[in-house]
Amino acid sequence: MNTIVNSPMFGITLTFLAYEFGILVTRKVRSPLLNPMVIAAALCIGFLQLTGIPLESYQVGGDFLIMLIFPATTCIAVSVYSKIDLLKQHFVPIVVGCTVGAATSIGSVILLAKWLGLPDILTVSMAPKSVTTAIAIEISALLQGQPSLTVMAVMITGITGVLSAPVLIKLFRITDPIIQGVALGTSSHVIGTAKALELGQTQGAMGGISIFITGLATVGVVALTF
């Protein structure tokens, strides 16, 4: 049994099976609360707890998957490049919005966490929550945060954005598709952008561009703040 669970193939296969199951579920039940990654993680946690297989065994293969985050991050450039015309056309408002958003996100996390008396490790792990997971993990590591807490914060942020966007758009009468897209992409990254795509093509593209610019702006803000 030990040779099986300590093989890298165990962690990799369990993760892939759980992910495929997560995709299957989200295809049947569409809800902003359900996301293949969340379902898969819950399944893996449940499996490890039930069988008593230690987390270290799972991570033997898991570490291999974590290494793939790097080339995946490099490839984010491709998705932005395919929307280059929109970026050129609305360059100034996008850069202003993403920079203000990145600063607001980090600033409000620090203030709220301090007010609630949360320990530093939680604060720095939450600080990059508004950027896409790949970038957030890197910034969290830079600040000596915990990647797993950061991924949690990123997920909560994404789901909040999707659920609240329709209400906020109505409340503040935001009709401009550019503003809708940038606000969604900046405040709630990829998950928000999926919602922006539902609102329209322009919103979706603006959301995708905003993920990239907000990621860069966040690195800048973090370099200045911490």
Partner: peptide, 15 residues
């Protein structure tokens, strides 16, 4: 990309 972030989430067990 989502598939690569499952492992960090599972590591929440350590936190």
């Amino acid at each position: 990309m989502g598939a690569f972030f499952i492992v960090p989430v599972v590591a929440i067990l350590e936190q």
